[in-house]
Amino acid sequence: MHNMETREKIQFKPETVAEINRIISQFPQGKQKSALLRILHIAQHEFGNWLSVEVMDYIAEFLNIKPIEVYEVASFYSMYNLNPVGKVVLEVCHTGPCCLVGAEKMIKHIEQTLNIKPGETTSDGMFTLKTVECLGACGYGPMLQIGEDYHEKLTIEKLDNLLNVIKNKNN
């Protein structure tokens, strides 16, 4: 997707660079790699919701570590998207406790409403549906996460409302 032309454009905003330097300074000299996970979150946010190889290479350069050290971390943790995703990612918990209170019904409802399966993105590029494991909201299920926000105690009506609000906001 990215070629050498876009490669040049991969650069953190100045305020992001300041934030990243603040994070790096929390670790001893030479241990800047410890900042990697947080920087990957920031990069994913800044560069369109996913981590391309070019973005990972840029971070490796930034932290003065080998590209493979970034790839192996990015591929280990489930919060990083290694492929493009929709503008809004619906991360629905499908672990046991949430299923006891109806998570599967919510997932099915999203599948039917948006006409996508988990892992897929709507054709307009708006929504991606992702099933995820327990997010620490088991007593407030069913639940889903969008960006940093938790949406808890979901019902079909709440879900419909939420999807409509998002659609309207992005139109």
Partner: peptide, 12 residues
């Protein structure tokens, strides 16, 4: 003493 917070990224 300094205390800092550092995030994981989705791994039980």
């Amino acid at each position: 003493l300094e205390i800092y917070v550092s995030p994981g990224a989705g791994a039980y």
